[in-house]
Simulated assay, not measured.
Amino acid sequence: MQKILYLFLAKLLGLYLNLLSFVYPKKASQLAYAFFSEPRTGKLSKDKLPQILKETLTETFQDGEHTFQSYTWEGNAITILLVHGWESNASRWENFIPYLKKSGSTIVAIDAPAHGLSSGKEFSIPKYAEFIHIAVEKFKPQYIIGHSIGGKTCLYYHYAYPNDLVQKMVILGAPSDFKVLLQNYITMLSLNTKITKTLEAHYLNNFKERIEDFSGRKFASTFSIKGLIAHDSEDDVVSINEGKKIAKAWKTAQFIETKGLGHSMHDDQLYQNIYQFLFETE
């Protein structure tokens, strides 16, 4: 029932934007982009942090007009960076942290733009990648783990900021092609051609990339580091075909297909597989 209501509201919103585009096309496009790029949930309050984040050393970093938050569980010289997905925050790793702690490693998690304790209302992959870049320069992680759009951002980060610091990367339930994400949004709202073209133009003008080229498989095809890609066959948010696209292009990565985990990818066996990949294989 909740899903039906959500779809109905999405269609209603799309109808409003389509009608608005004939009268105020610029306003319609701005609203369409805002609904696509502004998360509705995932923010945190400093006064009400989840318990898992209260156990950390916190640090706030400045990036231009934005700030982003990091959380560190101190350990040895081996460092792991955790990158969460859409409408989430650093606490999403709560179930995974105990497995990583067994290694004795230092664990660092960050909040994405407009998520957790990080500033802003708008999320974008390039801005998130800037946050990752600053975190890598500061904490020098050997391993990076990303979930969902956070995983896609990890791919873009390593493509845009190539370095020798990161040795292994784990990507969980991540989309490959940005065009698929945008098209899903357009289809869900039944947006007209006029708004569709302006949305595509926005990304070209602001990020200097055609959406066809903003592809995880394109980024991964340039990698020589070792990777682990995991995707669930019953993921109803990001199709498993997206994970397979990345795996096919990334020649030094292995692919794990899970079943019954959905998009969240929380699972003891998967955590053990990731642990083994990071710490028990060369």
Rank of each mutant, 00 (worst) to 15 (best):
T72N: 10
T72F: 12
Q51M: 15
W86C: 04
P50Y: 01
N89V: 08
K48V: 11
S91A: 10
D47L: 12
K48G: 08
G64M: 11
Y71F: 15
H66Y: 09
S70P: 07
V83I: 12
D47I: 00
L49F: 00
I52S: 09
E55Q: 12
I78F: 02
S70L: 01
I78P: 03
F68G: 04
I52T: 08
N89A: 13
N76Y: 12
W73E: 01
G85F: 04
H66C: 11
N89R: 05
I80M: 09
W73M: 08
E55A: 10
W86N: 03
K48H: 13
L57K: 14
E87H: 13
S88K: 00
W73K: 06
F68P: 00
N89F: 05
L49V: 05
D47Q: 15
H66P: 02
Y71G: 11
W73Y: 09
T72Y: 08
K48L: 14
K54E: 12
L49T: 07
G85E: 03
T79K: 06
L81S: 09
G75E: 11
Q62M: 12
F61V: 12
G75C: 05
T58K: 09
I52V: 13
K54V: 03
Q69I: 08
L49A: 05
F61K: 13
S91I: 09
I52Q: 03
I80Q: 07
T56P: 15
G75F: 08
F68S: 13
A77E: 15
K48W: 10
V83K: 04
E55M: 08
Q62C: 10
T56C: 15
I78E: 06
H66Q: 14
E87Q: 15
Q69H: 05
L82V: 06
G85S: 05
L57A: 14
T56V: 13
P50K: 00
G85P: 02
L49H: 00
Q51C: 12
K48E: 10
E59H: 13
S88G: 04
L53K: 13
E59L: 01
K54F: 03
S88Y: 00
L49K: 03
S70Q: 01
K48Y: 11
F61T: 09
K54W: 05
D47C: 11
F61G: 01
T79D: 05
K48Q: 15
E59R: 03
T60P: 02
L57G: 08
T58M: 09
T67K: 10
G75S: 01
L82D: 04
T60S: 01
P50V: 06
L53V: 09
E87A: 15
D63C: 14
L49M: 02
K54A: 08
L82P: 04
Q69E: 10
N89C: 14
P50L: 03
N89I: 12
V83W: 00
W73G: 07
Q69Y: 05
Q51I: 15
L82I: 05
P50M: 03
Q62F: 11
S70N: 01
I78D: 05
W73D: 02
V83L: 12
T72W: 12
L53I: 08
L57P: 00
P50S: 02
E74I: 07
